[in-house]
Design a binder for these strands. Structure first.
Ligand SMILES: [Zn+2]
Ligand SMILES: [Zn+2]
Ligand SMILES: [Zn+2]
Ligand SMILES: [Zn+2]
Lengths: 135, 135
DNA sequence: TTTTCACTTGCAAAGATTTGCGTCTGTGCG
DNA sequence: CGCACAGACGCAAATCTTTGCAAGTGAAAA
């Protein structure tokens, strides 16, 4: 609710990081997050950012994914999950909504009794254009 | 030398690594591969192992996956692909055959014109037992 | 055969991420 | 208030992986 004025901003690189990741569909690297969050917490170390992100990921508030850019990217997890198809040829990124992924996860759950929690799936492959070129 | 002429250039490192990854369902880290391949090529460097693995992955002969063990694991890609569901609680690993994954990939292809090439999918979640415990 | 040229490799260094360890801080309890 | 315990942090160091650069190799071209 409101930013209660009773407890000082105690334990929270977490809050600052969630703030930085606020805009949806924003995928930032640890370094980018570190830089951005320093505006709020000038003295925060990169290690703390890593540990905070790990904590947030365990709590299901942040996703951690390797999108093939050399460094892992972090994103805020919201009600409306999304996933990606990344072309290994042109680097093109297709974003798909959770619905069609969730349906499949549900099927897996029925078949294997396993509840998938992966909240930001990244699949690599070839986009339509590159498939043609590849022929 | 009596192999089909499909891949002309064969670096010795590549061949040795494929040899090491011969047994199916074997998932090794770069370090383990380096150690093993040194029996054939005593002087090979870890960097060469990494580059060779990257080359083999591009050629679709090796899969690269983060199975949550701290280091990426590499596996040989064979005709019969497989994938995994890993429980983030107990670490249990469920191996599933490609069929049910491939069906979904095919659906994605139809819907998005995107051909998925991910050949060793790893999904995290909760196994049946841990779901119960988690209640 | 000699030249050419793309590809492979090693070494050192850089970059990315995790871990060990000691310190600090907030919370709950007496 | 004063103490104990758990968790958060920083720093340095360890790991894991990638990259820059110069040298080595081998097969195709000349
Ligand atoms: Zn995304
Ligand atoms: Zn493409
Ligand atoms: Zn596997
Ligand atoms: Zn489990």
């Amino acid at each position: 609710m409101s930013q209660a004025a009773k407890t000082p901003r105690a334990s929270s690189a977490d809050a600052a990081i969630l703030q930085v990741l606020r805009p949806e569909l924003r995928h930032l690297t640890s370094k980018q997050i570190h830089t951005a969050v320093r505006k709020q917490l000038p003295a925060i170390s990169l290690v703390t950012v890593y540990r905070s992100l790990e904590r947030l990921a365990r709590a299901g508030q942040v996703s951690i994914s390797d999108m093939g850019t050399g460094a892992v990217v972090y994103a805020r997890v919201t009600e409306s999950l999304h996933h990606h198809l990344i072309c290994q040829d042109c680097g093109g990124i297709v974003t798909i909504e959770h619905a069609e992924v969730g349906r499949w996860f549900a099927a897996l759950s029925r078949r294997h009794g396993f509840k998938v929690t992966t909240n930001h799936l990244v699949l690599f492959g070839l986009c339509a254009g590159c498939q043609a070129t590849h022929r």
